[in-house]
Amino acid sequence: MLSVTSLVKSYPTPQGRLEVLRGADLDVAAGECVALTGESGSGKSTLLHLIAGLDAADDGEITIGGTPLRGLDDRGRARLRREHVGLVFQQFNLIPSLRVGANLAFQARIARRHDPQWEAMLADRLGIAALLDRYPDQISGGQQQRVAIGRALAARPPLILADEPTGNLDEATSEEVVRVIRDLVRESGAACLMVTHSTHLAGMLDRRLHLTGGHIA
């Protein structure tokens, strides 16, 4: 489902260019949930942003479901995210002015895959069915992250990218969140790449990749 080949990315700094990725390669199959670990500043988030089309690589190839990202313009990348990728952030990034229910359905709606039954089932599985009429600032951090996961899955994307989704949560909630993501991804047959610092959480997933020195080990 996801294939990354020889990915290179560097950033300009006052001391010269900082090479973050120096030819990273990885593959994630459908139905597989993979953990991506690495030191702070190793380029995990950069790699995720490149896969999501939020940033452009200097070199290398990314394909999602057989579609190469190279050559896609902003609109093409936006369409890719809308229809092929579900993103989960550390900071939840819910829309504060929308109720939980509307947040959950948002991406599915703009991807024209709004399915109330599917969303109701997700809300139920995520344990947020009773919170649908609340606003994000009226629920806890763990609940907000569940809503964000639900939003990512509601459009039934073939790829879920999660950037340290448990970074703001306590240990017990983190385990619960990772379990939910893993189970739902497996059941839906999507692929998932999750950035995490926690080796314990990484161990809960199907496979673990480690990013160091700009390469996947």
């Binding site: 609109r75 936006a78 809308r82 002015s97 991406q107």
Partner: peptide, 16 residues
């Protein structure tokens, strides 16, 4: 700005 980022991340193009 945070909302725009979320919208963009959810697949809304800059033009859209």
């Amino acid at each position: 700005l945070a909302m725009f980022r979320t919208l963009r991340a959810c697949g809304v193009s800059a033009l859209g």
